[in-house]
Design a binder for these strands. Structure first.
Lengths: 180, 180
DNA sequence: CCGTCATATATCGGGGCGATGTATACTATC
DNA sequence: GATAGTATACATCGCCCCGATATATGACGG
């Protein structure tokens, strides 16, 4: 389940350009599987080289050729094989949590700012989820609904946890400074 | 807040070898910020080159020298500066969720297996959290308690969400196969 | 006696991320 | 009407990181 495989999966919904896929990563996959041009374009090139996708180059005036990719029969088989790995990982890389481990070394005002920024980020995600739900969700595969609900639930929990427990990082800092 | 900075932060608790830091990554930081030898050793070398840590080489018979690292005054200042970035990121990279987006292309039995494996992983994390809590938590900085609580809360929410919503991926698949 | 774990180091290749660059055309804003 | 921004569309480069692997030895258990 690397970027290549996810691109392949996205192409089961129909042909697309690298630019199209980037938009899909941003709008619906971004919150749990990000990918930029630096990952997508090389991935599509490699998939084409392996014969897992076909590439139709449509010339454009003044602009670079539009490269429309479509999944091939071999690509479909490759994807089905990849989907048989029953131990996909789920990793978190949080500079936020790492930083909070060292909150006692930070200025209280900075700790507050970090927490507020995180809450703002979560709010942005919730807005994104609502936008997705406002669209046509009926023709979605069931997995998409599961994943969207997952994101919404975790976002809500994170928000609540931060609000309910930020006193651990802030009030306690003040107590320490009072005690010293 | 890259691996280098986190190592620097860990060294504020006292001197340590790369091996020691790896153990700390595994036991307490692993669930939100993983790092292997391939990240830690180069990070420590770079920190030493920059003068942010000192390195005492203790010869050992038959074994490679034990390199004990300690944070320097410049290192402490560098860390404090790094901790003033009030927009640390929090990223998820989930092959699990990516895979579930394509659940409709998977064999129902494989979907079940993936969900069960994820639940088992979460259970392992919860065991880890309990082990940490069983240790001496009193001398911990408040941030550690916040981060541990965060991990426990999210793990619980994930577990509940998967159990409550797996029917979206499984029953519905059966309905589809009945309908076809 | 053998396997495996713990201690302790280090490197290598592949992968991915963010930033940047190149072009053009349309659309706001002032 | 000029200027700035946004959208389309491609591509690459360097840095960082992750997993796997290699090396060496002593201890402990089956």
């Amino acid at each position: 389940m690397d970027v290549k495989t996810v691109c392949l999966g996205m192409l089961t919904d129909g042909e697309a350009t690298g630019y199209d896929l980037k938009k899909q990563f941003e709008s619906s996959f971004g919150h749990f599987f990000a990918a930029g041009y630096g990952s997508i374009y090389p991935a599509l090139s490699a998939l084409a080289e392996q014969g897992l996708v076909s590439c139709e180059e449509i010339p454009q005036e003044g602009k670079p050729d539009r490269k429309v990719y479509a999944i091939t029969t071999e690509g479909r088989q490759f994807l089905l094989d990849a989907l048989q790995n029953t131990s996909p990982c789920h990793k978190v890389r949080s500079e936020f949590l790492a930083m909070m481990c060292f909150a006692h070394l930070m200025r209280p005002a900075d700790v507050e700012a970090v927490l507020d920024n995180r809450l703002a980020d979560i709010e942005r995600f919730k807005g994104m989820f609502d936008e997705i739900e406002a669209g046509s969700m009926n023709d979605w595969p069931p997995g998409m609904k599961f994943v969207l609900g997952f994101g919404k639930t975790i976002a809500g929990t994170m928000e609540r946890y931060i609000n309910d427990n930020r006193y651990l990082l802030t009030e306690q800092s003040e107590e320490q400074s009072v005690a010293s």
